[in-house]
Amino acid sequence: MRPFDYERPWNIDAALAAVRDTPGAMYLGGGTNLIDLMRLGVLAPELLVDVSRLPFDRVEETGDGGLVIGAAVRSADLASHLGVRRRYPVLAQAALSVGSAQIRNMGTVAGNLLQRTRCAYFTDVTKPCNKREPGSGCPAVDGVHRNLAVVGYSPSCVATHPSDLAVAFAALDAVVRIEGATGPRRVPITAFYRDPGDDPRQDTVLEHADLITGIEVPPAGAAAHSAYRKVCDRTSFAFAVVSVAVVLEVTAGAVRDCRIALGGVAPKPWRAERAEEVLYGADATEENFARAARTEPAGARPLRDNGYKVPLVRNLLTRTLIDLAKKGA
């Protein structure tokens, strides 16, 4: 690990300035991923600017019935927040599925969105990886990729994004609040992650010194009927093989509102628009749920060893829709 500097500014302007003035600076939240990557030699920031104690550590009600979740809210606090549990079960369940109790106590909401892929080639500095070293190649395409992407990838990178919260936020149409050099801006979570294309280095649209300050979650409505289901290679403390976040409102036997995001299949939370289209206005029947699920992941092109993710995510989505419809009835 290379020596680095550490600063803990007490206000956002100081934090922004500290990172802006140092090209090799990075923000530090809970550190549950960044510190590991520094130990592995994947990242070597010159300066860590600790933003975990900036005043973005609360879940706040907005006037219209939505929420703003502070960037520094810990996953554990999000999972146990009463308003979140009642009005956005999908988000509370996703937060509870993060890592282990220790990880949830440390990891922040913004850090969860910004964690890096767990592709084993990315974390192994003795092997090529376009995300780490642009142009070095992607060994995963023909290598060990059982748990990598089936859709939305590019020949230069087949990594998946590992965040659970991002999948729930995508189904909730959440918006990321960002402070940057040009002032504050808002980016919908669905536009927050970049397609890997030819340059998979940057996972998100954030520029240097941009700082997430919070996540806006629109007013609840249908979100009270929502669920997050995560399937892993062991019972707890693992990244999703696939996951689904579903918001489903059924009125008089018909689907009135439906928002679906898939995790573990793509470099970003994958909004299942095709399935949503099939379901809007349709009768809330098991047949229709299965028919909708069969359209996803739309455009899937599984790699040699991960074709199982396609039936897996379809089955999981069908079942989650059925269970939610039953619950709502």
């Binding site: 084993a120 023909d142 290598g143 062991r234 019972t235 707890s236 403390f237």
Partner: peptide, 24 residues
């Protein structure tokens, strides 16, 4: 997990080499 192109084990940490947890 072997990567035959490089000839070594790829999943060299406990995030990638999974052991059973209590919940299992």
């Amino acid at each position: 997990e072997l990567d035959e192109r490089w000839g070594g084990f790829l999943n060299q940490d406990l995030s990638h080499y999974l052991l059973a947890t209590f919940a299992d």
